[in-house]
Design a protein around this nucleic acid. Structure first.
Length: 498
DNA sequence: ATGTCC
């Protein structure tokens, strides 16, 4: 145990605080004892740096926390005045989505049937860096004009119609579209036109539009699941509102804004860094990755435009993937129905009422968790339940659908975004044995599109998901509504021969 | 996360 761990003051079974000095309120730490012990010293240092950074009013560290870009992945950083691009992250609006079908789980009993669906999906939705639109039919080809519309309008009626996405799915989004800081999409259009002219600022931007409807690589994935509803009466009622169907197949996706958002984020890091340097400003804790802007400054407004456009791209990317996945399922199982349960981000800054004031809530690898009655749910179909929280665990131990409890206020209305890394990619590749990973998944009758499962993405490269979920429950943040059991996984990796 | 080192 190092010095920083000794500074953790335990305030509940799964809650602690970490003091940061200078009369600042301490960091809220969520996690059972074993989870708190799993935090590395560098992770805690990044959390302290974030809390001490200018304009920051509050920081929450979640059970899935690990080292990130400036701030830990798995943290919430709140500011009434400042925006922080690093703590939004390089994959702007990286998100989870869940598609519920009415296909009974038994239909996927035979591996041969699952192989057919895998093939139908990978034919439509590519994986891997730089990949996109390999076999998109003309009707769904994203040219410069449609790409521009996607970036500036998000999931508008016109965009959904052009891409053949059901218009009702916009209502199952945390945010279906993002406007510029002036409250219009005109500011986004102006900004995008300017970026398009500055070739050194955003190179070959139109080539990135064609990645719409693709997964990418790393920890992104698509996964067919069997839905198992939790036992409680209240949980059953909530599951019904969410549209979850016990014993039926659902499809969970994890991806973000691909090369488009990446380029916008990297361009912002570079330009804000040079603003700091030219003005002789010090980086918070000396870390350029914690570069920031006042939300109402010219730089802040430009960042918010770029974040909004990355977010719009990520939103339509997810919705298109879900439409293509449903189409793939229907190729194998004609006539089945599918509805989007929810689409929710874990890399975004949003304005929300926190501690009595509207503030910028930066969720970096953290999921919004608004309980029943929260003002931002007024008028939505989740007003009286809270919205669905989609938490990927790992294919072996499952994933979870949760709903926020009133206690979520303690964590700035946020929970974790998954299990969180236990070991670095390098360590995982060195330490984990390929044959054991593949056998472990085979033992659970889980197949994938990969010949061998990526070692750095193996279940054991991540923290114990059940301990993470226990942390969330014991801290009083959220309750489990359903568990998702993986039947097959789509990931970027060596393709299986078939 | 990212045409994973222009």
């Amino acid at each position: 145990m190092d010095t920083t761990h000794e500074m953790l003051t335990v305030t509940g079974q799964a809650k602690a605080t970490l003091p940061v000095g200078d009369d600042l309120s301490p960091i809220t730490v969520i996690g059972t004892e074993p989870i708190r012990q799993s935090f590395g010293g560098e992770t805690l240092k990044q959390a302290i740096n974030s809390r001490r950074a200018p304009g920051v009013s509050r920081v929450v560290l979640n059970p899935d926390a690990h080292v990130g870009y400036g701030a830990p992945v798995g943290c919430v950083m709140v500011s009434p005045t400042h925006v922080y691009p690093g703590p939004v992250g390089v994959d702007i609006k990286c998100s989870m989505s869940l598609l519920q079908t009415d296909l009974p789980a038994e239909a996927l009993h035979d591996a041969a049937e699952r192989r057919k669906v895998i093939k139908a999906i990978t034919k439509r939705v590519p994986t891997g860096a730089g990949r996109g639109q390999r076999h998109a039919p003309k009707s769904r080809r994203v040219d410069g004009r449609l790409g521009f519309q996607v970036a500036t309008e998000g999931a508008s009626k016109a965009v959904l119609k052009k891409l053949g996405i059901p218009k009702s799915w916009a209502e199952a989004c945390e945010d279906a579209f993002h406007l510029g800081p002036d409250g219009t999409s005109d500011s986004l259009a102006a900004r995008l036109q300017w970026l398009g002219r500055e070739r050194d600022k955003l190179d070959r931007i139109e080539s990135k539009y064609r990645q719409l409807g693709s997964y990418g690589g790393g920890n992104h994935f698509g996964e067919a699941e069997v839905v198992r509803l939790a036992g409680g009466e209240r949980e059953r009622a909530v599951a019904e509102t969410f549209g979850l169907k016990d014993g039926c197949v659902a499809f969970l996706s994890h991806c973000g804004s691909r090369g488009f958002g990446h380029d916008l984020a990297m361009t912002q890091f570079r330009s804000l860094k040079s603003v700091f340097q030219s003005r002789g400003l010090a980086f918070p804790a000396g870390d350029p990755q914690l570069v920031y802007a006042h939300a109402d400054s010219a730089e802040g407004q430009q960042y918010l435009c770029d974040m909004a456009m990355g977010a719009n791209f990520a939103t339509v990317n997810h919705l298109l993937i879900n439409a293509l996945v449903l189409e793939a399922f229907r190729e194998v199982f004609p006539g089945i129905r599918g509805e989007l349960v929810y689409f929710i981000s874990h890399n975004i800054a949003r304005q929300e009422p926190i501690d009595g004031a509207v503030q910028w809530v930066h969720r970096k690898g953290a999921t919004r968790a608004l309980p029943a009655g929260h003002p931002q749910l007024a008028g939505t179909r989740f007003e009286s339940t809270g919205h669905p929280i989609l938490l990927p665990g790992n294919p072996r131990d499952g994933s979870s659908v949760m709903v926020a409890d009133a206690g979520a206020e303690a964590s700035a209305f946020s929970v974790n975004h998954g299990a969180g890394r236990r070991m670095s990619r390098t360590r995982a590749k060195k330490q984990l044995v390929q044959s054991e990973i593949d056998r472990g998944l085979a033992d659970h009758d889980i197949i994938s599109n990969c010949r061998t499962y990526p070692r750095d993405e193996a279940p054991d490269a991540y923290k114990d998901f059940n301990e993470v979920l226990k942390s969330v429950r014991q801290a009083g943040l959220a309750s489990e509504v359903a568990r998702l059991q993986a039947r097959f996984v789509i990931k970027d990796g060596a393709p299986a021969d078939d």
